[in-house]
Design a protein around this nucleic acid. Sequence first.
DNA 1: TCATTTTACATCGTGCACGATTTAATATAT
DNA 2: ATATATTAAATCGTGCACGATGTAAAATGA
Lengths: 145, 145
Amino acid sequence: MEHGLKLEQQLCFEVYKASSNFTKMYARVLEPFGLTFTQYLVLLVLWEDDHILMKDIGQRLGLGTGTLNPIINRMIAQGRLTKAQSLDDKRAWIVSLSDKAKAEHEPISRAIHDKLVSCASPDVDAVELMKNLKSLNAFFGEMDL
Amino acid sequence: MEHGLKLEQQLCFEVYKASSNFTKMYARVLEPFGLTFTQYLVLLVLWEDDHILMKDIGQRLGLGTGTLNPIINRMIAQGRLTKAQSLDDKRAWIVSLSDKAKAEHEPISRAIHDKLVSCASPDVDAVELMKNLKSLNAFFGEMDL
DNA sequence: TCATTTTACATCGTGCACGATTTAATATAT
DNA sequence: ATATATTAAATCGTGCACGATGTAAAATGA
């Protein structure tokens, strides 16, 4: 059936564009801090739970070691994170926030918040959109096809 | 206000994950054809309108020359596309489908369609989701902040 | 006409994102 | 107890994605 295919094609493309648009918007806000969007996501995780394992960060963000390891290393080089071998399991490494990164929580969150407020659109029902996206992602999570 | 910020943070992340999930799903279907998701998007454009300029492809997909040029070159190397200098404007290059790429339209579309049908979820209201995403992307398109 | 600006494309450097492979540590299963 | 398997990270290669810069062609303007 043509119709169903076409709809789904457009859906994947709209999601693709929305992700690109969000990333660009965040990139502009984060640029003065010397942060990328993905690095910001790592900080979001650690601001919520500090001193966690690489694998736990990867699991929360849906990123593998091939992606996450270089990001963490760059953030260590930036002086934002530290990595320490776990005593319980010598394979595992515990990632922690530096004082600098802790101090950045407030100003960065404010910068993002200010941007979102200044952009608020009445045409976009964020609550409804979130609900649909969560269903979609939950669905993807369960199917591993 | 904390609440508004938190919602938007989650929204950008849900969009980010949804895009990643779609890309992975499409990648698996396209892998037997030796195509990436982005290359498939280029084909979607050309299957609709053949013999168009680089800049028009870039505009439709929201990609700049730094991204698009290497993709087009790889697809030329694959024998899927050809590029010819425009006679009207010697700066511009016209991209066209090879016979191979035209012949692939049907089997690739069917493979994608079969995958989507086999995955159809009653929990996801695709129509509603599309509507919200289109509003969101239209909004991004108008603000260039 | 001729200098200036704009446009279309090419190139470069950085940073994801992914799958595949490797290495070391731990768990398991005889 | 020891071979096997699994796990946590690191590494590698490919392919986006983006901004910045370069180049040539075309459009603009005094």
